[in-house]
Amino acid sequence: MFSDFIELIGAFVLVLAILQITSDRLYFSIKVYAVQSFFVSISILSIGIYSSSFDLYVSSFLTLVIKTFIIPYALFKTIDEMKIKREIKAFVNITNSLLVISAIIIFTFLLTRYINIGGSVIAKEIFPISLSIIFIGAFIMVSRQKPITQLIGFLTLENGIMLVATSVTYGMPLIVEIGIFFDVIVGATMASLIIHHINHDIDDMDATSLSDFKE
């Protein structure tokens, strides 16, 4: 019953990752990311309660604060300051992206049938679900043109990793998790800075222009 609950939360995270693909507005993407992070933190919290592990409480709290509030706030601010156009440009249009996503999902689910995780697993289905989320995040990074959407893709990917780490293995050591959080914050900040500079230097918010620099 508990595993069902965790799986349901995981499924919601996956649905939100897919919703991320369908969005064509930056604000909406960031909101979706915030809600997704909220679900991840719920998932971590409930596993913490289930296994009564203090580490997980902390990481759930950190997830909630950093990913649900701080990062989205920072991103909103970047968008407003940069006056970035709010449409999302993509190499692959949304319907086709969704086709790719369905292939990814089928692939991961088929693949995980052949993986034996071993040890005590809280929820079996979380593994393919979070693997799908990771691939969806990677796909967003590949298929979207603007650095800021690529950043959102990276954050989605990270959420997937967080989910699989906590649900399959009762969480990583706290120190590693805190390290990851700092990585994410630093990454987000760096990305915002770079975005700022790209915007400033080449007057364009499009990572495809980067290929102009090749010899």
Partner: peptide
Amino acid sequence: ENGSIHIYLLYILITSIAFLV
């Protein structure tokens, strides 16, 4: 070798999938 960063990212993705398989 078309010099697009996205394509290179795609290679990384494909390679990781291949390794996984």
